[in-house]
Simulated assay, not measured.
Amino acid sequence: MNTILPTSEPAAEELRRLAAAAEPALRARPDLARTVLNLARHQRRRRRLGRAAASVGGGFVVLTTLAAATLLGRAEYFTVPQPSQNMESTVRVGERVVFSKKLLPARGDVVVVKLAENGHEYDSIMRVVALPGDTIGCPAEVTGQCEAIVVNGVTVPEDYLGTTVTDPFPTSTVPAHMVFLLGDNRPQANDSRYIGPVKLTEVTGVAVHIKDSEGRTRAVPGAPAHDGPGNRDNVDPAGPVPPPGVSETR
Rank of each mutant, 00 (worst) to 15 (best):
V235T: 15
C146T: 12
T163N: 12
G133A: 06
Y122S: 10
V128C: 01
T166Q: 07
D159W: 06
Q188H: 12
I136G: 00
S172V: 15
H177N: 15
E202L: 04
V235P: 00
L200W: 06
V111G: 01
G119T: 13
L161R: 06
E117V: 08
P168T: 14
Q188K: 12
E121R: 09
H120T: 15
T164H: 04
T204F: 09
P221A: 10
P243N: 13
L161H: 03
G230W: 06
P175A: 07
L182I: 11
N190W: 09
D191R: 10
P170V: 09
T173E: 11
L182E: 09
A130Y: 01
V150H: 01
P224H: 02
G153Q: 04
T143L: 10
T164K: 05
G230C: 09
S124N: 08
D123Q: 06
A116K: 15
T164V: 15
V142T: 15
A176N: 10
H177K: 15
K199L: 10
P168Y: 06
A207H: 02
F169Q: 09
A238S: 11
D134F: 00
V142R: 12
K199Q: 13
V206H: 06
T201E: 14
T155M: 05
H209Y: 15
Y194I: 12
D123G: 04
V241G: 10
N152E: 11
N190S: 14
Y194P: 00
E117F: 03
P157S: 06
P187T: 13
Q188W: 08
R232S: 15
G153I: 07
V165L: 11
G119K: 08
Y160M: 05
V206E: 04
G144S: 08
G133H: 04
N190D: 14
D123C: 03
I125R: 02
V203H: 09
D167T: 15
K114D: 05
A148N: 11
P242Q: 11
G137V: 05
E147Y: 02
P240W: 13
L161S: 07
R232Y: 14
N190Q: 13
E121L: 01
V111Q: 01
T166I: 12
V208K: 05
P242I: 10
T166H: 01
L131F: 01
G230Q: 12
R232N: 15
D233M: 09
E158T: 03
S124C: 08
M126F: 07
D184A: 03
V165N: 09
G230E: 13
D167A: 14
R186C: 02
V208P: 00
T217L: 04
P197I: 12
D212T: 10
V129D: 03
K211A: 13
P187M: 09
V174P: 00
Q188R: 13
C138M: 06
G133F: 07
G205S: 04
I149L: 06
V235E: 09
V156R: 03
G144K: 03
T135A: 02
A223N: 03
N152D: 15
E117K: 05
L181N: 08
P187D: 12
S172Y: 03
T166A: 07
S192C: 08
G228Y: 02
V220A: 06
Y194T: 14
Q145H: 09
V112I: 11
G183L: 03
E158M: 01
M178G: 05
A238V: 01
Y194K: 13
E202P: 00
P240D: 14
G137H: 03
R193S: 02
G205C: 02
I136T: 11
V151D: 08
R216A: 13
V174I: 12
V206K: 00
Q145W: 11
